[in-house]
Design a protein around this nucleic acid. Structure first.
Lengths: 203, 203
DNA sequence: TTGTGTATATTCACTGGTCGGTATACATGG
DNA sequence: CCATGTATACCGACCAGTGAATATACACAA
């Protein structure tokens, strides 16, 4: 076992990831990926059955690291729940300022391949967003928010909306606006919980 | 002056619109558009300088009708402001159920062409969203909401978020969730206005 | 009325180049 | 010798865009 197989595979995925994220799927040829990875197209086709497989691998490789990053931003943020949610948006706004930032790779891929509903990459993207939504829901359930599922969806909608809008306008300030909205919605849900569990008149 | 020029141009744009919206920009060849329009590619290139020009014309043709549709849904909806805003999302959810629905053409185009920041089609898409946001802001200003600009942005974020998420999951119920969130945010802004302009319990 | 010039509008056939994918051969380590 | 991995060279299909010719319609002069 030489062990080069996985290393080569990772090198190809790394090259594909940069190119696909930067330029889109159909705008990047397999030749370009192979060249960036420093090998021949034929070698690439030894490690991947097709370009579609390569695209799927590109998103698959981004799934867990992306989720981990969001969780880290949430965990390391100070303050109460609304602030911790807002922190995700604020951190994202910082990233969005970099010139190489091009929005959400999962959303952009699914938008580009919208005419291929069964494409494996789209399934991976959908699963990724579902995982994020589920994680949010558990965060809200942990503090006793009754409408945790609905609130998680609303935060997801604001997040993906800011991906799209910031990518279109190249203006990260939309991300902060989304964070404020998210914070407000979380706060409202918390107040509803307090009224429900500890019925007391507000002063 | 035969007047056929505009008619042919419109026919080309109509064919391009269907194909670009359904399948994406780079997945549709100029030959395919010409065939769908019932003429030769060379004729198409007589009316449009390049494929990029054709893409721009495709979005340009969708700009005003799209805005008018949103305004109509808003105007014709019953109830107070929150309900009228939510009506946009509800109507959109109905459309999103149709099999040919593929999200927002402006956002999908800008996502696909994200590596060409100066592309005319992207500018048209950005301007379209800005017009919608500006219209929302005036609607909120008319009723005296102080944070009209911020609220308009938040609604826009929810709307574009639901475009992206519903297109990914093929589940229009996200659109209704976004509508509820939008309605809540509008209602909060209205309450803030009432407290500010008509101090009920305070002097 | 008829002939001619001109701008508009359309077609066929083509170019240089790129695409995703492959046939085949060669290397190298176990 | 065989499985793994890499390279050269190639395929047919398709791509955006073009050259050259042609059809059509109208303006205007003879």
């Amino acid at each position: 076992m030489t062990g080069t197989q996985n290393a080569t595979r990772e090198r190809i995925i790394s090259a594909a990831s940069k190119l696909f994220y930067s330029d889109g799927i159909r705008a990047v040829s397999v030749d370009a990926v192979a060249e960036k990875a420093g090998l021949t197209k034929r070698t690439l086709y030894y490690h991947f059955r097709s370009k579609d497989d390569l695209v799927a691998a590109y998103l698959e490789a981004r799934d867990q690291p992306n989720l981990a990053l969001f969780k880290r931003w949430f965990d390391e943020a100070a303050g109460e729940l609304p602030s911790k949610v807002q922190a995700i948006f604020d951190q994202l706004a910082r990233n969005a300022g970099h010139p190489k930032w091009k929005g959400c790779g999962f959303l952009r891929t699914s938008a580009e391949l919208a005419n291929l509903p069964g494409h494996p990459a789209i399934k991976i993207g959908a699963a990724h967003k579902k995982k994020f939504e589920a994680w949010l829901r558990t965060m809200f359930e942990e503090v006793g928010i009754a409408s945790a599922a609905r609130l998680a969806r609303q935060i997801l909608l604001l997040l993906d909306g800011s991906f799209a809008v910031v990518q279109l306008h190249r203006d990260p300030s939309y991300m902060e606006t989304a964070g404020e909205a998210a914070s407000s919605l979380v706060e409202m849900a918390l107040r509803a919980r307090l009224k429900g569990t500890r019925p007391r008149s507000r002063a």
